[in-house]
């Protein structure tokens, strides 16, 4: 898919597909890390639940919250991409996606550019509240990884 695909197309091809059947939605009873993130820019709240194994890898990941299709799709993509990744690797990936969504017209990290679904969120460029909603799961996950069980606004 070209990176200049328009908003309605990306909604239909990527966002709504995830929104209808999101991965890893729900809560994690035995989470080792958890964070409730809130974004003032989009007004949405989302919680990320993580269980890290002995090697500090993400053994299990979930997200919860009544969020928009954009945040839902972004969270769904995130959980698939971070599962079984190391803690440090995950933090880096979260930061790279946030950088991409902060300025989607810049060339993102290589793995994002080659990730067709994730890079299609570039179509949200010019819709700041939707970019914030897309970034919310990643910034919440980063906070969750860095602080064991907490809740602050981001």
């Amino acid at each position: 898919m070209s990176r200049s695909t328009d908003l309605p197309t990306v909604y239909q091809d990527v966002i709504l597909r995830h929104n209808r059947d999101p991965s890893h939605r729900g809560e994690l009873a035995n989470a080792s890390h958890q964070h409730e993130g809130f974004s003032r820019l989009c007004g949405e709240t989302l919680t990320v639940w993580l269980r890290l194994d002995a090697q500090k890898r993400i053994a299990d990941i979930r997200f919860s919250g009544e969020v928009s299709a954009v945040a839902m799709a972004s969270a769904s993509m995130m959980t698939r991409r971070l599962e079984l990744k190391s803690r440090d690797q995950s933090v880096l990936m979260c930061q790279q996606v946030q950088a991409f969504l902060k300025d989607p017209d810049m060339t993102p990290a290589n793995w994002i550019e080659s990730d067709v679904s994730l890079s299609s969120l570039q179509a949200l460029s010019g819709y700041r509240s939707r970019l914030a909603a897309a970034a919310l799961p990643w910034q919440t996950c980063e906070k969750a990884l860095q602080t064991e069980k907490s809740a602050t606004s981001t």
């Binding site: 908003l7 909604y11 949405e44 969020v67 954009v70």
Partner: peptide, 13 residues
């Protein structure tokens, strides 16, 4: 079935 924020963005579009 449609979150208000997504609707708002589509109208903004």
């Amino acid at each position: 079935g449609i979150h208000p924020h997504d609707l708002g963005t589509m109208l903004d579009h």
